[in-house]
């Protein structure tokens, strides 16, 4: 039978920064083909297909909080596979190979992580699960 794709609305204009992305205009309606946990979603718009940032999309049928896992305040252990330097003041700067605790896996690909006393956003694409849960 036909595959039903979720429809999302673009909330702000976005200019693509690499070849296989889509340019977005506020109000455009996109069909989502694949939701990658790194925050890039493969979308269809008219006859075009490409990647769009989930952070610029909202579901047509209201908030998608049901899709988003609840925060896990105990934390799940991950290792950084790449360093990242914070750009916004709510982000964390980490080096390659650091172990951190993931508290909230947000759909836009920016996860809330904790390192010691500090908590902030980090790109999920630079994290790899160690498969362990933190012992309390």
């Amino acid at each position: 039978g036909p595959i039903m794709l979720d429809t999302y609305r673009v909330i702000a204009d976005y200019s693509k920064s690499s070849k296989y992305e889509l340019n977005l205009k506020a109000g455009d309606l996109l069909d989502i083909v694949e939701k990658s946990p790194n925050g890039w979603w493969f979308c269809q718009y008219d006859t075009q297909r490409g990647w769009a940032p989930a952070s610029y999309l909202e579901p047509l049928d209201g908030p998608d909080e049901s899709e988003e896992p609840e925060p896990n305040y105990a934390g799940e252990l991950y290792k950084t596979t790449k360093g990242y330097t914070a750009v916004e003041d709510d982000e964390l700067t980490l080096q390659l190979g650091e172990t951190i605790e993931v508290i909230h896996k947000l759909l836009d690909g920016w996860w809330v992580v904790r390192k010691g006393e500090k908590t902030g956003f980090y790109p999920s694409m630079f994290l790899h699960s160690t498969g362990e849960r933190r012992e309390l």
């Binding site: 909330i11 702000a12 976005y14 920064s17 690499s18 296989y20 992305e21 083909v33 694949e34 990658s36 790194n38 925050g39 890039w40 493969f42 490409g50 990647w51 940032p53 989930a54 952070s55 610029y56 990242y84 916004e88 836009d108 690909g109 920016w110 956003f121 790109p123 694409m125 630079f126």
Partner: peptide
């Protein structure tokens, strides 16, 4: 076939959306 997703982190949500989430 689906191309690989971009290798760079996606942009953070637009500023007004970010406030709404907090």
């Amino acid at each position: 076939s689906i191309k690989q997703p971009p290798q760079n982190p996606p942009p953070r949500p637009p500023a007004d959306m970010r406030r709404k989430r907090l």
